[in-house]
Design a protein around this nucleic acid. Structure first.
Lengths: 225, 225
DNA sequence: TCAATGAATGACTGGCAGTCAGTTGTAACG
DNA sequence: CGTTACAACTGACTGCCAGTCATTCATTGA
């Protein structure tokens, strides 16, 4: 009996249609200025139907955001797969994150904005746990990479892997969102190129994490860049 | 003719009353869930009157936030005034920022939230420039401190003062808002104490900024802590 | 006492998130 | 093929709230 299955397929298709429509609108208007009516119209469904699939505007917003997280995770996994050492993988991670930031700016913005406590208070329990799981996947990934770097003797032994992960992630994300918010503003009023600042900061941080031994090795085998 | 002056005084008093009422409500509910009606009631004024003094809810929000920035700036100026070297002043700055974070949590939250582009788009031109000026004051303050540290030979000469300022500020703020968002969550799911992470990160960053010479000196004259 | 001026008011408007009574389309059954 | 059952879908409607504006009120100066 394939009818059940077909219905199942149609249902997930609907969910996806809604997600695509929502993504378009959220990208263009942001959470605040997007309206459910516009999303419904774009999805060629009535507003009521949207609420059959997502509990609230905020839930829908997070659902779109989570696709972004999945994408980022996939990019991470791919980029680090072919690296030899953990430190090389960490550098690749930084590059990929920067790439994600530039090529999927709207997703990055949603990802960052979704960290607001105010938002999470208005979201269903299920969505929150789903986010939490996705989130954890990425954190574990980074953390384990750093732990491996310590084992391999390239990252300083006196550092706490998770602390390093938090510092790296926080600093990077925060500078990126500063760029996103108004790189031009910084350029014009303070003559600062934030893209350069981001690159320098990453270099500075990664360098400061490494053991003297690893730094020495790096100097003997400079990267292609 | 003191009438003009009295009226002037009364007007600024009103502005302040409204600000105080708004602060209470925003602290309790956040921007989204606060209503102008509630603010009006708390200020013992009608809603219409509020709009004679502030153009929109968002403007009012930023006005409250800016008092927070002023407070922070004052705390900064005080704390660094009595330090001998720039590096000592920088450490004092970090301590004071942490203190501000803990003692004025709601203001910190507003300060951080006010960095959202979405918010700034809904705010009057005047408010935006006022924010910008206040913002710049703090950035210049930090930047100059770092530049002084370089001159004094305690901070590495190969670093760009403004880049360092951005990195320090971004990393710190981002970790703090992570604590604010849910330190308990991190403790329970990943067994991480984010307060410790913050302290370690600051130590790590400040240490990595310093010249070998300055680090050496520090070891000979350890701080009181 | 009486305009004149400006501050304050609150009923009202428009817009939007979320709901729900009702409609439609489809499958299963006799 | 007619009928029932059921799930998917609809869109008019409700409640809420930011922001407005015609009106009221208070003060001042003549």
């Amino acid at each position: 009996m394939g009818i059940q299955e077909r219905k199942e397929r149609e249902k997930t298709q609907r969910r996806d249609d809604i997600l695509n429509a929502a993504q378009e609108v959220f990208f263009e208007k942001g959470l605040q200025n997007a309206t459910m009516d516009e999303i419904a119209e774009k999805a060629e469904l009535s507003k009521g139907t949207i609420y059959l699939y997502y509990r609230s505007k905020e839930d829908l917003y997070l659902a779109v955001m989570m696709r972004g997280m999945e994408l980022l995770y996939t990019m991470f996994a791919q980029a680090t797969g072919k690296q030899r050492s953990a430190v090389e993988a960490l550098r690749a991670l930084a590059d990929v994150y920067t790439q994600f930031f530039h090529e999927h700016r709207s997703l990055f913005r949603m990802l960052h904005f979704s960290q607001t406590p105010q938002l999470h208070k208005q979201v269903s329990e299920e969505m929150r746990t789903a986010c939490s799981i996705q989130n954890m996947k990425i954190w574990n990934f980074v953390q384990e990479l750093i732990a491996r770097g310590i084992e391999e003797g390239d990252i300083r032994r006196d550092l706490n892997p998770i602390a390093v992960a938090v510092l790296l992630w926080s600093a990077t994300t925060s500078i990126m969102s500063r760029i996103d918010y108004g790189a031009e503003y910084w350029k014009s009023t303070m003559n600062v190129d934030l893209d350069t600042v981001l690159r320098q900061s990453l270099e500075f941080l990664l360098d400061a994490l490494m053991t003297p031994h690893a730094r020495e090795q790096l100097r003997q085998q400079p990267s292609i860049s």
